[in-house]
Design a protein around this nucleic acid. Structure first.
Length: 349
DNA sequence: TGACAGGGGGTGT
DNA sequence: ACACCCCCTGTC
């Protein structure tokens, strides 16, 4: 197994990474909103990375030794992996998003990047169709998180991520997913980088191997007990059994993705470990179905507190959400969710 | 600095 | 309603 940060630094050349280039189709984004998009519970493979001081494009690596060991986090520099793609992101002086990728894979990243960020979708216009004119709370959410958007991730790995999510917070889900990739996913690319492996560890400049997540066929071959060692707990059984179902049904996910929302959701719910909440998250973040309205405990709290819907059951709230927020209920949900993450902790319920 | 509860973005029975 | 798992976080 190839361990991140181990072994000699094969190359410390800045040319490991392509020059920074703007992501066309993304609007100006505050650091907060970019953070909410990347690390707000839609995806689980983005991490803040530290930058070496004072260097330009493609420059994070280069400093030898411990120079960056205690370096500060760059407020909005991120490292992310999805599918076979590895990308760094940052914001320019105009708050526009720029990307850089390992040179070995950069040519293949451009199109997936557009799809992942759904750059063809104008979320400002979509957000404006939400019923904010008659909903003061939603209105202030739209202002506070202007630019928020829904990602379009690969369906299979979205499913895997949300099978890990039961009664877990984002940090813990990210840890499980990172272990699954590191231990069971094929290597994608190698590059030097200044990054943090974990929040509580200092940033290190090192040669790193990036791994994709294991495919469902690959997961089906891994004993449940081995999966469990990725800190999955009781979720290991869900993943193992779902993998067996998917491995013996080629095209199952693709067919599901092509179905109308209700039918797709019903199919997903037939998988072990997938209930309504997980199915809705998978369809929202992994299939672009903006009508999906996942009801979790945060939304339960939000609806109780901001909409005076105390003691409503999840199914009732799902119905309310579809009626009140309309065909983009999932987008509204993401705004509400972002608001509650920012303000909910300090307010007693 | 280290140990110790308590609780966690859900599903299945 | 409660078990399933066990890591993270806050607190002493």
């Amino acid at each position: 197994m190839t361990a991140v940060g181990s072994g000699p630094a094969v190359s410390s050349a800045a040319s490991d990474w392509t020059a920074w280039e703007r992501v066309n189709g993304l609007p100006a984004l505050s650091a907060d909103v970019l953070s909410e998009i990347l690390d707000g519970g839609q995806a689980f493979r983005w991490q803040r990375i530290a930058t070496a001081s004072g260097s330009g494009a493609g420059s994070a690596p280069g400093a030898r030794g411990p120079a960056s060991a205690s370096g500060p986090f760059a407020a909005d520099e991120w490292l992310g992996v999805w599918g076979k793609n590895v990308v760094r992101l940052r914001r320019d002086e105009n708050e526009r998003v720029e990307w850089s990728a390992p040179t070995s894979i950069a040519a293949g990243v451009r199109l997936p990047l557009d799809e992942y960020f759904a750059t063809g979708r104008d979320f400002a216009t979509l957000s404006d169709t939400l019923p904010w004119r008659s909903d003061p709370h939603l209105a202030r959410c739209l202002i506070a998180f202007h630019g928020l958007r829904i990602l379009r991730q690969p369906l299979g790995e979205t499913l895997l991520g949300f099978l890990c999510s039961a009664t877990k917070q984002i940090v813990q889900i990210k840890q499980m997913v990172a272990l699954l990739a590191e231990r069971h996913g094929a290597p994608i690319a190698m590059a030097t980088g200044s990054f943090v492996a974990r929040r509580d560890l200092p940033a290190r400049t090192a040669s790193a191997v990036f791994h994709r997540l294991p495919t469902w066929s690959e997961l089906a071959e891994i004993p449940e007990a081995t999966l469990r060692q990725c800190l999955l707990g009781f979720r290991a059984r869900y993943i193992s059994e779902t993998a067996k179902v998917l491995a013996r049904s080629p095209g199952w996910l693709e067919e599901t993705e092509s179905l109308p929302y209700a039918a797709a959701k019903e199919r997903l719910c037939s998988l072990p470990g997938v209930g309504e909440k997980v199915a809705d998250c998978v369809l929202l973040f992994g299939a672009g179905r903006l009508e999906s309205f996942p009801v979790d405990v945060w939304i339960l709290k939000t609806m109780a507190r901001r909409y005076a819907l105390e003691r409503w059951r999840p199914a009732q709230l799902a119905q309310f959400g579809r009626v009140h927020f309309g065909p983009l209920a999932g987008l509204a949900q993401q705004y509400l969710f972002a608001w509650e993450r920012r303000h909910g902790k300090t307010v007693t319920g």
